[in-house]
Design a binder for these strands. Structure first.
Lengths: 245, 245
DNA sequence: CGGCGGTTTGATGTGACTCAAAAAGAGTGG
DNA sequence: CCACTCTTTTTGAGTCACATCAAACCGCCG
């Protein structure tokens, strides 16, 4: 298998887990010219306000999308893992309303926006796949707004941990019980709209309640039902059922 | 013009403001069979968790999408106005992760999800239009997460008012300075993650600063630059520039 | 003129923030 | 394997923004 195909495969697998592609459509995607790039920890992939001409598919590592205010406060909008097309929005929106940066050493491939649009134009199934992907993204954003807008500190942190767990599980990096937390508590704080100190205290509270344990970066969910209950976590919003068509 | 076409026209106009459609594509949309429905104030159009088979296009009135917690707390995720296809997500996501309800007397047309998908399959320009619409939606959700996650009470309220103003302006219901606020303060509160009381006090603060005035439901922006500054409002996230293609 | 949704006010409580510093890990080089 | 540094997590103390509760007020409509 070519370098291209092997780095693009995780995304195809993610799409086909939801709904199989025709051989022709799959092949067309895997034949796209790509450019593999490596990043260190906390490196910028895209800045807010830029006009990117390429999309970004994560091959390895963890990145986040964020928006920031002039006073320095930052909101992380989403975390992305291997197989995620982070910047699908770049294909059709000309100006980036979020920045993208890494949280671990990361490998990513860049795909030309025009190639994505051509694919969507030629293959309705790809148009639908990209659209579905964007809809799931949007659904997650809605849940995050609910999270920071209405839940208490402990609930927010619990919810985020469960989401991370679920998403890592879908790419084989968690067994649903135990996973390596790919980000620091300060980053979690930026994602749930709390201070780092209070995020830490919320995690401690979850530990003391017996819902989870941590060993360094490793998180062990001790009592999933209890954790899901405090977080009111319901994975419907991740839309694991796939698209209607 | 048929009843169908006249109620569907506002959406076509919104789409074509961004990028013109081919005559054929336009005609195909306007020929869709639709069902016009009327709702009163605070009526439910869709409940969380349902499996709708039709999308919903607002002809007249204001509706919101929301998510709620078992303790009764509610987060409004978006407001929608005439010409908005509120429930485009229903076309491709099988289960609704948000509810939809009206805030004013509302007229809406229901379009079969399968018709939407057929249109996207047959006309790549429609597939792109729907995808773009969803991307803009997602961008607004990201901004709302930033709003509730990182801004202070006064900033949040100012930002929401400016967004409402900008969106009403694009459909001719505001001149950019003066508009009729289509929702109550309690609803604003649910949208910005504050209590109704504190939302009220934040509005008062904006009034006392001279940034805006209110006469009943009418809002008059007295000092747009000042208001935009406190809100750090920048309409880039509404993507008025339209799609790349 | 009475009733009702919506707005406004006041008083009080508290969850989360800030600042600052200590403790614990993780990585690097001698 | 230990010393050193840098990052991340944890602790403590004091403060403030926003929540809650309850009641008054206002404007609109029948």
């Amino acid at each position: 298998m070519s370098v291209n195909a092997s780095s693009l495969l995780p995304y195809v697998e993610k799409i086909e887990r939801r709904r199989p592609l025709s051989d022709e459509a799959r092949a067309a995607f895997l034949a796209l010219p790509v450019q593999l790039e490596s990043y260190g920890t906390y490196q910028s992939i895209l800045n807010e306000g830029e006009r990117p001409d390429r999309c970004c598919l994560i091959v390895e590592g963890v990145v986040s999308r964020y928006k920031s205010l002039k006073n320095g406060r930052r909101q992380i909008n989403s975390f992305h893992y291997a197989g995620d097309m982070v910047d699908l929005q770049a294909a059709i929106l000309t100006v980036a309303d979020t920045g993208i940066r890494t949280h671990t050493p990361t490998k990513a491939v860049r795909i030309d926006c025009e190639d994505i649009l051509d694919l969507a134009e030629k293959y309705p199934e790809w148009a639908r796949a990209f659209w579905f992907d964007t809809q799931v993204d949007a659904s997650i954003f809605r849940e995050w707004t609910l999270n920071v807008g209405q839940r208490t500190a402990v609930e927010r942190v619990a919810h985020l941990l469960l989401e991370i767990s679920a998403r890592l599980e879908s790419i084989g990096q968690s067994d649903g019980k135990e996973f390596v937390l790919p980000v620091t508590q300060a980053d979690l704080a930026d994602a749930v709209g709390l201070s780092a100190v209070h995020t830490n205290r919320s995690i401690q509270q979850l530990r003391h309640s017996g819902a989870l344990r941590t060993h360094g970066r490793k998180v062990v969910i001790e009592n999933y039902p209890a954790l899901a209950k405090v977080a009111s976590f319901d994975r419907t919003y991740l839309h694991p059922e796939g698209p209607r068509r």
